[in-house]
Amino acid sequence: MEIKLHDKYFVPFISAQELDFAIANMAKQIEDDFQDETPVFIGVLNGSFMVMSDLMKHYSHPCEVSFVKMASYEGTQSTNEVKQLIGLNQNLEGRSVIIVEDIVDTGNTIEELKHIFKNQGVKHFKIATLFLKPEAYKKDIKLDYVGVRIPNKFIVGFGLDYDGLGRNLKDVYQLSE
Rank of each mutant, 00 (worst) to 15 (best):
F13I: 06
K139S: 14
L5H: 05
M56N: 06
I116F: 14
I141F: 11
K57P: 03
V82E: 08
L113T: 13
L85D: 05
I127K: 02
F13L: 02
A16D: 12
K57V: 15
V148F: 12
K83L: 15
M52N: 12
V172I: 09
V100E: 03
I99K: 00
G147H: 02
G159S: 14
E93H: 13
I42F: 05
A22G: 03
L175V: 01
L19F: 10
K8L: 08
K69C: 11
F67I: 13
D163A: 05
A22Q: 00
I141N: 10
Q90P: 01
I42W: 07
Y137P: 02
Q174P: 01
E177Q: 05
D20H: 09
G87C: 06
V172S: 12
V146L: 02
R149K: 14
V11C: 06
L175S: 00
I99W: 08
F21Q: 13
L85T: 10
D161L: 02
K153R: 14
F41A: 04
M1K: 13
P12L: 05
I42S: 03
T109L: 02
D105T: 02
K123R: 15
K123S: 08
I110E: 11
G43K: 04
H115Y: 13
S96K: 04
N25W: 07
I86P: 01
V40Q: 08
M56Q: 05
R95E: 12
S66F: 10
R167Q: 03
H58A: 14
T106H: 09
V82D: 07
S53D: 07
E2H: 08
E31T: 01
K57Y: 07
L92P: 01
C63D: 00
M70L: 15
M50C: 06
V68F: 03
R95K: 13
I150S: 07
T79Q: 12
I30R: 02
D32H: 03
I116N: 15
G87N: 14
V97R: 03
N80Q: 14
D171W: 11
S66A: 15
V51R: 06
D7C: 00
M52F: 14
Y9I: 04
A22L: 00
F34W: 04
P151C: 05
N91I: 11
H115W: 10
L165Y: 08
D7E: 09
K142A: 13
K69A: 12
M50S: 08
F41Q: 00
H115C: 11
T106G: 11
K69H: 13
V68Q: 08
I98C: 05
K114W: 13
V100H: 01
V82A: 11
Y162P: 03
L130C: 10
H58E: 13
E93Y: 12
Y9N: 09
M26L: 04
Y173Q: 10
N168E: 14
K118Y: 14
S176K: 14
G94K: 09
D7T: 05
F117M: 15
K126E: 10
L92S: 11
S60D: 09
D36N: 08
V156D: 09
H58L: 07
G94H: 09
K57H: 12
I155D: 07
T79I: 15
D144I: 06
V156Y: 04
K114M: 12
F34R: 02
L169F: 14
V97T: 06
E111C: 07
M56H: 01
H61N: 00
K4M: 03
S176G: 10
